[in-house]
Protein backbone atom coordinates (compact mmCIF):
# COMPACT_ATOMS: atom_id res chain seq x y z
CA UNK A 1 0.00 0.00 0.00
CA UNK A 2 2.83 2.26 0.85
CA UNK A 3 4.36 1.55 -2.56
CA UNK A 4 1.18 2.62 -4.29
CA UNK A 5 1.05 5.86 -2.37
CA UNK A 6 4.70 6.48 -3.08
CA UNK A 7 4.23 5.84 -6.82
CA UNK A 8 1.12 7.95 -7.06
CA UNK A 9 2.72 10.77 -5.16
CA UNK A 10 5.77 10.69 -7.43
CA UNK A 11 3.66 10.64 -10.63
CA UNK A 12 1.47 13.36 -9.26
CA UNK A 13 4.44 15.61 -8.56
CA UNK A 14 5.95 14.91 -11.94
CA UNK A 15 2.78 15.76 -13.86
CA UNK A 16 2.09 18.82 -11.78
CA UNK A 17 5.57 20.12 -12.35
CA UNK A 18 5.18 19.53 -16.05
CA UNK A 19 7.91 16.90 -16.17
CA UNK A 20 7.38 14.38 -18.90
CA UNK A 21 6.76 11.05 -17.26
CA UNK A 22 7.22 9.03 -20.45
CA UNK A 23 10.77 7.74 -19.95
CA UNK A 24 10.03 6.10 -16.63
CA UNK A 25 6.63 4.93 -17.68
CA UNK A 26 7.05 1.35 -18.70
CA UNK A 27 8.40 0.04 -15.45
CA UNK A 28 6.24 2.38 -13.43
CA UNK A 29 3.16 1.37 -15.36
CA UNK A 30 3.86 -2.29 -14.87
CA UNK A 31 4.21 -1.65 -11.22
CA UNK A 32 1.27 0.65 -10.92
CA UNK A 33 -1.00 -1.48 -13.04
CA UNK A 34 -0.65 -4.29 -10.61
CA UNK A 35 -1.49 -2.07 -7.73
CA UNK A 36 -3.95 0.74 -8.47
CA UNK A 37 -7.09 1.32 -10.55
CA UNK A 38 -6.53 3.14 -13.83
CA UNK A 39 -9.74 5.13 -13.60
CA UNK A 40 -11.92 5.98 -10.65
CA UNK A 41 -15.10 7.99 -11.25
CA UNK A 42 -17.24 8.91 -8.27
CA UNK A 43 -20.61 10.67 -8.37
CA UNK A 44 -19.85 12.36 -11.66
CA UNK A 45 -22.52 14.68 -13.05
CA UNK A 46 -22.29 16.62 -16.25
CA UNK A 47 -24.64 18.92 -18.12
CA UNK A 48 -24.51 20.92 -21.31
CA UNK A 49 -25.79 24.50 -21.47
CA UNK A 50 -25.64 24.68 -17.70
CA UNK A 51 -26.30 28.38 -17.59
CA UNK A 52 -29.15 28.60 -20.07
CA UNK A 53 -31.08 25.43 -20.73
CA UNK A 54 -29.21 22.70 -18.87
CA UNK A 55 -29.28 19.27 -20.41
CA UNK A 56 -28.10 16.77 -17.83
CA UNK A 57 -26.26 14.05 -19.61
CA UNK A 58 -24.46 12.32 -16.74
CA UNK A 59 -26.01 11.99 -13.31
CA UNK A 60 -24.06 10.78 -10.22
CA UNK A 61 -22.15 8.24 -12.21
CA UNK A 62 -19.47 6.03 -10.64
CA UNK A 63 -17.03 3.69 -12.31
CA UNK A 64 -13.75 2.02 -11.54
CA UNK A 65 -11.45 0.56 -14.16
CA UNK A 66 -8.63 -1.58 -12.89
CA UNK A 67 -5.27 -1.76 -14.53
CA UNK A 68 -5.04 -4.01 -17.52
CA UNK A 69 -8.79 -4.14 -17.42
CA UNK A 70 -10.91 -3.50 -20.49
CA UNK A 71 -14.26 -1.88 -19.80
CA UNK A 72 -16.96 -1.30 -22.39
CA UNK A 73 -19.71 1.26 -22.07
CA UNK A 74 -22.67 0.63 -24.29
CA UNK A 75 -25.39 3.15 -24.95
CA UNK A 76 -27.63 4.88 -27.40
CA UNK A 77 -26.45 7.86 -29.41
CA UNK A 78 -26.63 10.91 -27.17
CA UNK A 79 -26.59 8.87 -23.98
CA UNK A 80 -23.42 10.61 -22.78
CA UNK A 81 -20.92 7.80 -23.28
CA UNK A 82 -18.59 9.88 -25.46
CA UNK A 83 -18.85 12.73 -22.96
CA UNK A 84 -17.80 10.35 -20.19
CA UNK A 85 -14.84 9.23 -22.27
CA UNK A 86 -13.83 12.84 -22.97
CA UNK A 87 -14.03 13.66 -19.26
CA UNK A 88 -11.82 10.69 -18.38
CA UNK A 89 -9.40 11.84 -21.09
CA UNK A 90 -9.29 15.39 -19.69
CA UNK A 91 -10.89 16.85 -22.79
CA UNK A 92 -14.03 17.98 -20.95
CA UNK A 93 -13.93 19.56 -17.51
CA UNK A 94 -15.19 17.70 -14.45
CA UNK A 95 -18.24 19.67 -13.37
CA UNK A 96 -19.38 17.68 -10.33
CA UNK A 97 -17.90 14.65 -8.69
CA UNK A 98 -14.42 13.16 -8.72
CA UNK A 99 -12.48 11.61 -11.56
CA UNK A 100 -9.11 10.04 -10.90
CA UNK A 101 -6.95 8.80 -13.72
CA UNK A 102 -3.86 6.86 -12.81
CA UNK A 103 -4.17 8.22 -9.31
CA UNK A 104 -4.47 11.85 -10.38
CA UNK A 105 -7.59 13.81 -9.58
CA UNK A 106 -8.44 15.57 -12.83
CA UNK A 107 -10.22 18.61 -11.46
CA UNK A 108 -7.08 19.47 -9.52
CA UNK A 109 -4.93 19.50 -12.63
CA UNK A 110 -4.44 22.59 -14.73
CA UNK A 111 -4.44 22.57 -18.50
CA UNK A 112 -0.71 21.99 -18.73
CA UNK A 113 -0.84 19.06 -16.32
CA UNK A 114 -3.77 17.56 -18.18
CA UNK A 115 -1.77 17.87 -21.38
CA UNK A 116 1.15 16.07 -19.79
CA UNK A 117 -1.16 13.34 -18.55
CA UNK A 118 -2.60 12.80 -22.03
CA UNK A 119 0.77 13.00 -23.71
CA UNK A 120 2.37 10.43 -21.44
CA UNK A 121 -0.37 8.09 -20.40
CA UNK A 122 -3.43 8.21 -22.58
CA UNK A 123 -4.10 7.10 -26.13
CA UNK A 124 -7.25 8.09 -28.01
CA UNK A 125 -9.00 6.18 -30.75
CA UNK A 126 -11.98 7.80 -32.51
CA UNK A 127 -14.77 6.54 -34.68
CA UNK A 128 -13.89 9.12 -37.36
CA UNK A 129 -10.18 8.18 -37.08
CA UNK A 130 -9.23 11.88 -36.76
CA UNK A 131 -6.06 11.46 -38.72
CA UNK A 132 -4.41 14.62 -39.93
CA UNK A 133 -5.03 14.55 -43.66
CA UNK A 134 -1.92 16.43 -44.63
CA UNK A 135 0.40 14.16 -42.64
CA UNK A 136 1.43 10.80 -44.01
CA UNK A 137 0.93 7.57 -42.11
CA UNK A 138 4.34 7.65 -40.45
CA UNK A 139 3.98 11.26 -39.33
CA UNK A 140 0.46 10.66 -38.05
CA UNK A 141 1.54 7.69 -35.95
CA UNK A 142 4.62 9.35 -34.49
CA UNK A 143 2.85 12.62 -33.71
CA UNK A 144 2.61 11.98 -29.92
CA UNK A 145 6.34 11.27 -29.84
CA UNK A 146 7.12 14.42 -31.80
CA UNK A 147 4.99 16.44 -29.38
CA UNK A 148 6.89 14.86 -26.50
CA UNK A 149 10.16 16.00 -28.08
CA UNK A 150 11.40 12.55 -29.12
CA UNK A 151 13.97 12.90 -31.88
CA UNK A 152 13.51 11.67 -35.43
CA UNK A 153 15.76 8.66 -35.07
CA UNK A 154 14.03 7.36 -31.96
CA UNK A 155 10.66 8.01 -33.54
CA UNK A 156 11.61 5.95 -36.55
CA UNK A 157 12.83 3.13 -34.33
CA UNK A 158 9.57 2.98 -32.42
CA UNK A 159 7.51 3.32 -35.58
CA UNK A 160 8.84 0.34 -37.51
CA UNK A 161 7.64 -2.51 -35.24
CA UNK A 162 4.28 -0.83 -34.70
CA UNK A 163 3.69 -0.39 -38.44
CA UNK A 164 4.47 -4.05 -38.81
CA UNK A 165 2.14 -4.93 -35.93
CA UNK A 166 -0.83 -3.08 -37.42
CA UNK A 167 -0.15 -4.56 -40.85
CA UNK A 168 0.87 -1.33 -42.55
CA UNK A 169 4.48 -2.14 -43.18
CA UNK A 170 5.63 -0.19 -46.23
CA UNK A 171 2.69 2.20 -46.11
CA UNK A 172 4.39 4.87 -44.00
CA UNK A 173 4.59 7.38 -46.83
CA UNK A 174 0.93 7.05 -47.82
CA UNK A 175 -1.57 9.76 -46.94
CA UNK A 176 -4.72 8.93 -45.00
CA UNK A 177 -7.15 9.50 -47.81
CA UNK A 178 -5.64 6.78 -49.97
CA UNK A 179 -6.20 4.26 -47.19
CA UNK A 180 -9.35 2.23 -46.62
CA UNK A 181 -11.40 2.86 -43.48
CA UNK A 182 -9.90 -0.20 -41.82
CA UNK A 183 -6.40 0.91 -42.68
CA UNK A 184 -7.07 4.39 -41.36
CA UNK A 185 -8.27 2.93 -38.06
CA UNK A 186 -5.10 0.84 -37.88
CA UNK A 187 -3.12 4.06 -38.18
CA UNK A 188 -5.25 5.62 -35.44
CA UNK A 189 -4.63 2.59 -33.19
CA UNK A 190 -0.92 2.76 -33.86
CA UNK A 191 -0.93 6.49 -33.02
CA UNK A 192 -2.82 5.79 -29.79
CA UNK A 193 -0.35 3.12 -28.74
CA UNK A 194 3.03 4.33 -29.95
CA UNK A 195 3.85 6.03 -26.66
CA UNK A 196 2.76 2.92 -24.73
CA UNK A 197 0.04 4.63 -22.69
CA UNK A 198 -1.28 3.21 -19.44
CA UNK A 199 -4.83 3.97 -20.56
CA UNK A 200 -6.46 3.74 -23.98
CA UNK A 201 -9.77 5.47 -24.60
CA UNK A 202 -11.64 4.25 -27.67
CA UNK A 203 -14.77 5.95 -28.96
CA UNK A 204 -16.70 3.69 -31.36
CA UNK A 205 -13.48 2.35 -32.91
CA UNK A 206 -15.36 0.24 -35.43
CA UNK A 207 -18.30 2.57 -35.97
CA UNK A 208 -17.19 3.51 -39.46
CA UNK A 209 -16.13 0.04 -40.54
CA UNK A 210 -17.87 -2.95 -42.03
CA UNK A 211 -18.37 -6.00 -39.85
CA UNK A 212 -15.35 -7.91 -41.16
CA UNK A 213 -12.98 -4.98 -40.90
CA UNK A 214 -14.42 -4.18 -37.49
CA UNK A 215 -13.64 -7.64 -36.23
CA UNK A 216 -10.07 -7.45 -37.52
CA UNK A 217 -9.55 -4.04 -35.90
CA UNK A 218 -10.99 -5.22 -32.59
CA UNK A 219 -8.71 -8.22 -32.60
CA UNK A 220 -5.75 -6.01 -33.28
CA UNK A 221 -6.71 -3.53 -30.57
CA UNK A 222 -7.25 -6.28 -28.05
CA UNK A 223 -3.96 -7.97 -28.73
CA UNK A 224 -1.87 -4.79 -28.75
CA UNK A 225 -3.42 -3.47 -25.56
CA UNK A 226 -2.97 -6.74 -23.86
CA UNK A 227 0.62 -6.88 -25.07
CA UNK A 228 1.32 -3.40 -23.71
CA UNK A 229 -0.56 -4.01 -20.49
CA UNK A 230 -2.74 -0.95 -20.91
CA UNK A 231 -6.22 -0.41 -19.57
CA UNK A 232 -9.00 0.20 -22.04
CA UNK A 233 -12.23 2.15 -21.81
CA UNK A 234 -14.31 1.55 -24.88
CA UNK A 235 -17.61 3.18 -25.70
CA UNK A 236 -19.78 1.69 -28.38
CA UNK A 237 -23.33 0.95 -29.33
CA UNK A 238 -22.26 -2.40 -30.75
CA UNK A 239 -22.75 -5.38 -28.51
CA UNK A 240 -20.26 -7.34 -30.50
CA UNK A 241 -17.60 -4.72 -29.87
CA UNK A 242 -18.44 -4.61 -26.20
CA UNK A 243 -17.78 -8.33 -26.15
CA UNK A 244 -14.02 -7.84 -26.12
CA UNK A 245 -14.20 -6.07 -22.73
CA UNK A 246 -13.66 -7.68 -19.36
CA UNK A 247 -16.69 -5.86 -18.05
CA UNK A 248 -19.50 -4.01 -19.78
CA UNK A 249 -21.87 -1.33 -18.64
CA UNK A 250 -24.98 0.10 -20.16
CA UNK A 251 -25.33 3.83 -20.04
CA UNK A 252 -28.81 5.11 -19.74
CA UNK A 253 -30.33 8.12 -18.02
CA UNK A 254 -26.86 9.43 -17.36
CA UNK A 255 -25.91 6.44 -15.24
CA UNK A 256 -24.15 3.13 -15.69
CA UNK A 257 -25.64 -0.25 -15.05
CA UNK A 258 -23.73 -3.51 -15.36
CA UNK A 259 -24.70 -5.26 -18.53
CA UNK A 260 -26.15 -8.75 -18.15
CA UNK A 261 -25.11 -11.55 -20.42
CA UNK A 262 -28.53 -11.37 -21.96
CA UNK A 263 -27.82 -7.85 -22.99
CA UNK A 264 -24.53 -8.78 -24.41
CA UNK A 265 -26.11 -11.59 -26.17
CA UNK A 266 -28.28 -9.28 -28.12
CA UNK A 267 -31.36 -8.27 -26.23
CA UNK A 268 -30.26 -4.70 -26.51
CA UNK A 269 -31.12 -3.48 -29.91
CA UNK A 270 -30.35 0.17 -30.50
Amino acid sequence: MGNIKAFQSERHRAIQSGVNTTPARNSDNDFAKQLAPAVVVENLSHAYNRKTRPRHIIESLSLTVAHKEAVAIVGRSGSGKSTLLNIIGGLEPVQDGVVQVLGLQLNKLNDSQLTNLRRANIGFIYQAFNLIPTLNVADNITLPLALAGVNTKDRAEQLAPLLDAVGLDGRGEDYPDVLSGGEQQRVAIARALIHKPALVLADEPTGNLDAKSGRVILGLLQSLISEQGSSLVLVTHSLEVAGIADRSFIMTGGQLAPAQDSHINGSLAW
Binding site: G89, L91, D111, S112, T115, N116, R118, R119, A120, F124, N130, L131, I132, P133, T134, L143, P144, L147, A148, R191, H195
Partner: peptide, 16 residues
Protein backbone atom coordinates in the same frame (compact mmCIF):
# COMPACT_ATOMS: atom_id res chain seq x y z
CA UNK B 1 -9.42 23.54 -36.11
CA UNK B 2 -10.15 19.84 -35.95
CA UNK B 3 -6.55 19.02 -36.80
CA UNK B 4 -5.37 21.21 -33.95
CA UNK B 5 -7.89 19.58 -31.62
CA UNK B 6 -6.40 16.19 -32.52
CA UNK B 7 -2.99 17.60 -31.66
CA UNK B 8 -4.29 18.79 -28.30
CA UNK B 9 -5.91 15.43 -27.57
CA UNK B 10 -2.73 13.65 -28.61
CA UNK B 11 -0.68 15.59 -26.09
CA UNK B 12 0.04 19.00 -27.47
CA UNK B 13 -0.12 21.71 -24.81
CA UNK B 14 -1.81 25.05 -25.39
CA UNK B 15 1.65 26.61 -25.44
CA UNK B 16 2.84 24.12 -28.03
Amino acid sequence: AREFAVLRATGSSRKQ
